[in-house]
Amino acid sequence: MLWQQLINGLALGSTYALIALGYTMVYGIIQLINFAHGEIFMAGAFFAFLMVMVLKVNIFIALILAMAFCMLLGIFIEFVAYRRLRNSSRLSALISAIGVSIFLSTLALLVFGADAKGFPDGIFPNGQLQLGSVSISFLQILIFVVSGFLMLTLQFIVHRTKIGKAMRATSQDYNTAALMGVNVNMVISFTFALGSMLAAAGGVLVGVYFNAVSFNMGLLVGLKAFAAAVLGGIGSIPGAMLGGILLGVTEVFTVTVGFSSYRDAIAFAVLVLVLLFRPSGLLGQKIQKKV
């Protein structure tokens, strides 16, 4: 049963990791905690839900369409709500982010109603793979494969491509990168697109896995993913993955040992503990004050 619960925890953690990546990348580049990120996750889930219900497309195509949709949504949000505030105080951009978050979730509430919606039966084969005493459902395999693939791709983009190099340069020093001829506006748009795309993938996977898409699904998951990003060290991409998976596994094991009432409380207590001993997160760099 321990192994089984580990699988459950890894599946949950992988979805947190996908979302945490978006927080961490945006923060790494413009030091903004993008609170609308949880709602992009929700928007991705609803978009795929609509694709499946109305256009009857395959779930994989819906996943790709939702990722594309959220890329555009992310770029659009950055352009409308954050770009003009880039040189004003960080608090203004943060409030703007909260505004976008409330706007999107209220919009979803008005359009789709308060009840959770479920994907239809049989959208994804409901079988299991038996490995000794452990059974892994096909959905869990899907989550591992999709999130693993996306995280590897992300690592490749950031470390092996020209745009990745520009992203890293911008995150190290925004002004110098701009002086060196990096098109920082483009880099920031690209970062939002990439982060939103991952959130959309997370949203669709969570929507299918738990079979529930609702207007407020982004709130708690967004908060947990943000916590995961902080746990791993905000700004650090491997940190976000590690943080997400740790948080998921902690939650599940809290339930396993019989404290199901306290799952969120204990998960967040662990977060506080880690931060007390490592204020910059597990894999975060020491914060240096620029003089």
Partner: peptide, 11 residues
Amino acid sequence: GDKDFSAQITN
């Protein structure tokens, strides 16, 4: 409001 019941069901 919970969505993930995997751990409880495994128990």
